[in-house]
Amino acid sequence: MGVGAYVAVSAALFALGVVCIIARRNILYVLMGIEMILNAANINFVAFNRFGGDGLDGRMFAIFTIILAAAEAAVALAIVLNVFHLFDSIKPSDVDLMRE
């Protein structure tokens, strides 16, 4: 399979991630969507690293993305906990204090 197929899978996964963030009314889906988007990016990194260059740069970036995702997940979940504590709900539509 050529690089085009991987890029296509990555793009599809990215699109699905965005849909996941937008379509559902639960903050956890937002988190899951973000994970999908990050994974889509990782596929691209690794694929281009495999087909394009001969170094480790792409894989390096993928590792960092994973680390970032881990940190993001931890912080995001902590935020979710706080949101739940404050608003007694985890619907993103309820969390709209920023409008004021």
Binding site: L31, E35, N49, R59, A62, I66, A69, A73, L77
Partner: peptide
């Protein structure tokens, strides 16, 4: 894609860590 290490890291961190968090 030949990235064994990354595949293992993916399973360890995403499946083991992030999913558990979610």
């Amino acid at each position: 894609l030949g990235a064994d290490f990354l595949a293992m890291a993916q399973i360890l961190i995403y499946v083991g860590g992030i999913l558990a968090l979610i």
